[in-house]
């Protein structure tokens, strides 16, 4: 029995002009299977068909040819949408609603009790760092804050399948890292995630498998580790060595392996990590901010809303992981 949650078969989309003549072939016989519990990344340059694929999978566009099925059912089946969460490229939210009202509005569209929505709303807002601005209208939010709220609305129904279109666009490095950690945690909880992004580093960090699209066709598809591994070179991580020891090692390698292309340099700190260190200090100093919360101390870090029988892990390690991972 197939483990595929999302399945496309020969999916083709041709956009037509006003007179019904074929204008652009946006997708050409795309066949993808996304398995349960997998984080799948869809990459490609502008106009490669990523967004079209996503929209076809969500039923926002109709295929010209081919089929899409989600949980084994056609996309126009309303019942499957109970299990889907979607964060669009831009968070198309209502400016006149507050963050809480937004989550209430979208939550009420699902088959979830009002009590459950009431309980889940503050938890989700806390999780995305908007706990303190829940009563503010969305039109007053920065782009990053609306992205966070957009993510919260995508998770309001505790979906099994999550479509994330450029989830980190407009977010600061902390937000980006939080989202990436969140994606990893959701994956650990058995969720299936389809990620569309231009930021290749984000995709690399969180995706199990990727597909690269160009001209509406798949050019490459496979596991990230397999696709990115270089089998013709090695990297050694060593503590600081004396110059003599380093010289001896180089000589040994040159003699025994006959290798001349050897480089030795100090590893550099990543800008992301450096930035996070500065912000952590600001939080420790209790500097005030009108923006999204930066969770620094363990006490302040909330739990991801527990809604299924899955073991709920806390994201209290988000910042700590963030800061300690590469030490």
């Amino acid at each position: 029995m197939s483990n595929a949650v999302v399945k496309t078969h020969n999916l083709t989309k041709i956009f037509k002009d006003f007179w019904g003549r074929n204008k652009v072939k946006a997708l050409d016989k795309l066949s993808i299977e996304i398995n349960r519990g997998e984080v799948f990344g869809l990459l490609g340059p502008n106009g490669s068909g990523k967004s079209t694929t996503l929209k076809l999978m969500l039923g926002l566009l109709f295929p010209t040819k081919g089929k899409v099925s989600i949980f084994g059912k056609p996309v126009n089946n309303t019942a499957i949408k109970e299990k889907i969460g979607f964060l669009p490229e831009e968070s198309y939210l209502y400016g006149y609603l507050t963050a809480k009202e937004t989550l209430f509005f979208y939550g009420n569209l699902f088959d979830i009790s009002r009590n459950q929505i009431k309980k889940r709303t503050p938890q989700l807002l806390e999780m995305v760092g908007l706990g303190k601005v829940g009563s503010r209208p969305v039109r007053e939010f920065s782009k990053g804050m609306t992205r966070r709220l957009g993510l919260a609305q995508a998770l309001i129904n505790d979906p099994e399948l999550i479509f994330l279109d450029e989830p980190t666009s407009g977010l600061d490095p902390i937000g980006t890292k939080q989202i990436k950690n969140l994606i990893t945690e959701m994956k650990n909880r058995g969720k299936t995630i389809l990620l569309c992004s231009h930021l290749l580093a984000d995709v690399e960090d969180v995706c199990d498998r990727i597909a690269i699209l160009y001209g509406g066709k798949i050019r490459v598809m496979g596991k990230v580790d397999e696709l990115l591994s270089k089998h013709d070179s090695l990297q050694l991580n060593l503590p600081e060595l004396k110059p003599e020891t380093l010289k001896q090692i180089k000589c040994l390698i040159e003699k025994t392996e006959n290798a001349s292309n050897i480089t030795v340099e100090h590893p550099k700190d990543r800008l992301e990590k450096f930035f996070l260190k500065v912000i952590e200090q600001a939080v420790v100093d209790k500097s005030e901010t009108a923006g999204a919360n930066v969770l620094a101390t363990e006490k302040e870090i909330p739990e991801i809303p527990e809604t299924t029988e899955h073991n709920s892990k806390t994201n209290k390690k988000i910042i700590n992981d963030l800061l300690n991972k590469e030490n």
Partner: peptide, 14 residues
Amino acid sequence: EKKQMFLLCTKPVE
């Protein structure tokens, strides 16, 4: 026009 319908149409509402 504002694409808010994207979110509405991906929710379980006919």
